[in-house]
Simulated scan of single mutants.
Amino acid sequence: MMFSFISKIKSNLYLFLLILIFIGAAKLVVSLKTSDKILEFGYPLEIYETQSKDGYMLGLERIPHSRNVNKTSKIGKPVLMVHGLYGTSMLFAAVNTSQAYALSDAGYDVWLMNFRLSGISKLIKDPKSGIIPPLQNVSWDFSMEELAIYDLTASIDYVLNITGYEKLDLTGFSLGNTIILIALSELPEYQNKVNKIVMIVPTTRMKTYHAPAWRMYFLIKLRIKGEKYIPKLPDYDNQIFGYNCMKNNLFWKYYCRNVVNSVQGISLPYNRKALELLKVYPQPTAVKVLFHVYQHIRSDHFCKYDYGPIQNIKYYNSTVPPDYDLTKIIVPSYILHSKIDSTATPEDIKWLVNQLPNVKKTRFIKEARHSHLGIIINSEANKITNNFMVQSLNDNS
């Protein structure tokens, strides 16, 4: 009885802190951007913007060469890094051992993508009005498919146009890989523009995803309330939760660790500095994107957005949404995943590997300290994730 009571208290505390993630924001600190971190660690920075075919502005940060080489040195091959759900390009640049710097030091021309209305993309002025449109005034009627066929393709085309290369490499984390795979299956001509795909804990079909019941309840409530996007934060990025997690305070250290672990399902060692990532997390995300993810959790399929039987007939000429055909993707693929990942589970990764016809290498991490988010922000990421990415991109087999 006492155990049940304590468990309930802990659950409520975790939920309270997670609510802070969604609704709280701190005005006490200055804005933190990916560009701030790139410059802080001494790397060169260029910022670009482009526009998707459906009218959304997209911002990209570029690290054209390592801090350790002369500016006149030849710029290497371009690699476009694609972040995951609720994220920004900060995911790959939060600390000095992050993946963007590892690829830059390996000689690559690193481009960091930000999906529509996230990161620097939400801070770009509308080319027609000359103002930054308030989030509540823009259309949030898009799913993962629009992020794939409009945002990712626009970014690929822009990078190739600027660099003069015919092909680039793609690396993604979690949902970023989902977007990559949707784009290449739906628009196979873009496979001619990609050398390799390096996927870190990719999510596609999520049949064995382990989620607390409250997440499902939360999504259902959002649909009932008619929300278009969450979280509904002001345009400044720094949030109460991330700010407090950076404090050298035992209370916040304990609860920040537990909240992060409740999201990813495992206790892990991480660099406390990496928690600066929480100052810009979560970014506003369309509820329609969340429901598209939810589809892949509650079914055995990796498929298009489900509008319901009647609307599906209108969009797809079928009562059910068609599956994405991953067997069409012949681009060489590399996959890193973890045994205790509760989001991209080994069972679902195995399903993905069986679908893709040209998987060159998979690495399966058995150590319990490497979970879904931990595989990126873990203090040992430079030994595992970074090495895997560099070795995969350098692979000439």
Rank of each mutant, 00 (worst) to 15 (best):
S4W: 11
L15N: 11
L18P: 00
I19S: 13
A26R: 01
L32C: 04
G42K: 09
Y43F: 14
R62I: 03
P64N: 04
V69S: 11
N70A: 13
K77N: 09
P78N: 10
L80V: 01
M90E: 05
A93N: 07
T97Y: 15
G107S: 05
D109L: 00
M113H: 10
P127H: 08
G130Y: 07
P134R: 10
S143L: 08
S155R: 13
D157M: 08
V159E: 06
S185Q: 03
P188N: 10
Y190H: 09
Q191A: 09
T204L: 02
M216T: 13
Y217E: 06
E227S: 14
L233H: 12
L233Y: 09
D235A: 13
M246C: 05
M246G: 13
L250K: 12
Y254G: 00
I266D: 05
R272S: 12
K273N: 15
E276Q: 14
V287S: 03
V293C: 11
Q295S: 12
S299G: 00
H301E: 04
N312H: 10
I313S: 04
S318H: 12
T319P: 06
I330T: 15
V331T: 15
S338R: 06
D341V: 08
A344S: 14
P357D: 05
T362H: 05
F364C: 14
E380V: 06
K383W: 01
M389K: 09
S392T: 01
S397T: 09
